[in-house]
Design a protein around this nucleic acid. Sequence first.
DNA 1: ATGGTAGCCTTGCTA
Length: 257
Amino acid sequence: MATKIATWNVNSIRARLPNVTAWLTQAAPDICVLQELKCEEAQFPRAEIEDLGYNLAIIGQKTYNGVAILAKAPIEVELRALPGGEDDAQARYVQALIGGLRVASIYLPNGNPVETDKFAYKLAWMDRLAAHAGTLLALEEATVLAGDYNVCPADEDVFDPQGFAGDALCRPESRSRFWSLLNQGWTDALRLFRRGPHVYTYWDYQAGAWPKDHGLRIDHLLLSPQAADRASDADVDRRPRGQEKASDHTPVWCLLR
DNA sequence: ATGGTAGCCTTGCTA
């Protein structure tokens, strides 16, 4: 039986708790990685998630960032931060082993505005991610690097490519780093099964983006070759984005045999 | 039409 792995930027786990518990109950992923918890570990609504049958690994941060791994099977945490950032205190990475599968929850920096040091931080973070991803590939094991990458890989992943050409999510420096990562040997799980336009995972809260389907594809599940060999399906679940008090992102999932 | 929304808290910052 297949393992269902999902990623979801929830934009505050405390504000989103009813939406998250409803989706976990209905979609029943075996593993779900979350981003933008926007709270410290002590403030995370642990009991409400554990009551649904999930184990937890939480890397919290007050107000900003924060990542977690939820899994029905036991979680063995391997890393609580992306290697190579000794002076980087932002909670953007957690990696664990779950029943022989390696899974990471990634919250890659947004990088806007590009004329500030935020963009340099994003690019440096992507370089660190590529270096670490290379070491993971060398293990030749089944690994899923899932999360909010804050990168639209190509123009078809953007509702308005011209309008976003200068945005940190679409800039050539961001895209070239994402493609270099893929070219190491990672597979974009969603694109393996869902090609074509209008495959979006995020819609801004502003300007009626959701009803107009003015979306972006920025949440990705990257599979090592050993994981890609087991992939049988992947999709975006748009339903949570249309509900009351929705996150601006919606879950993306894949199945591994 | 140069806006608009959401979350948390620093009534501004991040997205």
